[in-house]
Design a protein around this nucleic acid. Sequence first.
DNA 1: GCATATTTGTCCGTATGTATA
DNA 2: CTATACATACGGACAAATATG
Lengths: 225, 225
Amino acid sequence: MVAVENKIENDDRSLVESAAARMRESLIVGELSPGQKLSEHQVAAQFGISRNTLREVFRLLTSQRLLTYIPNRGVFVAAPDEAAVIDIYRVRAVIQTGAIRAATRGHPALAKMRRLSERGREISLTGDWRKVGTNNMEFHRAMVEICDSPRLSTCFDLVLAELRLVFGQLEDTAHLHEPYLDLNASLITVLDAGDLKTANSQLEAYLIKSERAVLAALQRASRHM
Amino acid sequence: MVAVENKIENDDRSLVESAAARMRESLIVGELSPGQKLSEHQVAAQFGISRNTLREVFRLLTSQRLLTYIPNRGVFVAAPDEAAVIDIYRVRAVIQTGAIRAATRGHPALAKMRRLSERGREISLTGDWRKVGTNNMEFHRAMVEICDSPRLSTCFDLVLAELRLVFGQLEDTAHLHEPYLDLNASLITVLDAGDLKTANSQLEAYLIKSERAVLAALQRASRHM
DNA sequence: GCATATTTGTCCGTATGTATA
DNA sequence: CTATACATACGGACAAATATG
């Protein structure tokens, strides 16, 4: 049902943390379908950990909104609906416009963004759209780093992970990221020039466009079920 | 050492959730000192729950930054330092200015803010500064509700809880809240008038002032130890 | 609507490793 | 350096809630 044989060097962390990381990855790449029930017994066996330890993992991922707890019924893979998507983009708007407002010329995060933007173009040539998507997320993650705020970055990571959960529900992640390569490139050019006003309007345009695309794809997906 | 005999009607939730709520309250009101080690055995006995259950509670509160995990050493009450305070106010600035930018006349949250502001004045007359502080937090919490974003509100609640942890370290919470009654009242007046520009500059003034006061108090407190 | 099987919620005992006096 | 204390993790147990036939 699910691939869990990745024992990829997680020994530096505690068992519950490494297991949480593994399950987090499974969730993000879409190996588990949203709404799916996760049996304690079964998952514990798959991950090779005890039920007690697994319950700690569940608590962690539930607090990150990747899993959903229903009392006396167990945990389920979170299934972000349209309301969730709308809310996620609301969070993004607030945090990312805040980031741009905080942008100062020469900030390390800007260089990182430029690097990621260029790398995104390279990846797009290979046609690996999943990687393009991941790269795009890293680009926006770097944008938030302009704030130099670990707490804002953590909060942002949470909603991004949730968003990837949504992408996992969709089939065609291709055109969900491709059109934004140009926008991202333009954004850093404007930012480097210090034109925060234009940068913010471009960002808002991006967010609206992206939100609409995700919502439309989500509605298509839910209709096909 | 710590009062834990409050079995105040927590039966509707699961054991771990009610225990987490109780411990959360203990942390926020300052019953436990920052940096203090929390022995699994001891705390489990005090709360009347098993160590397994307690560990789930610890995971929850750790993800909320109220506790700190040190591998193989256990959990400790989080001790937010100056860097944390600075970061907290950075988050507040981004989220709360975002909230004000989203303010529309007649939004329910504005009415709530007005109610809380007036209530704050009443409480201040009694001289119960702890309650004034709590009221002030609720005021700002209501401000974030303008966004109509559960995720932003949750994120904001997290940093507010952390901030209360800081207050727990200080003795004189009195003048940490009193001067802001006027500012809050003024803020809603300006917001009701729809003058977002002025509202934001007043908010920024508040945040800077408050941050400086907290930082100063924190430095005084750390010197006295 | 009932009886039964399954699963969650919670606890205990215990073995092992890690940190500290 | 040894001993003690403690965190980490496991497996088993049982009641209560839920799902199933």
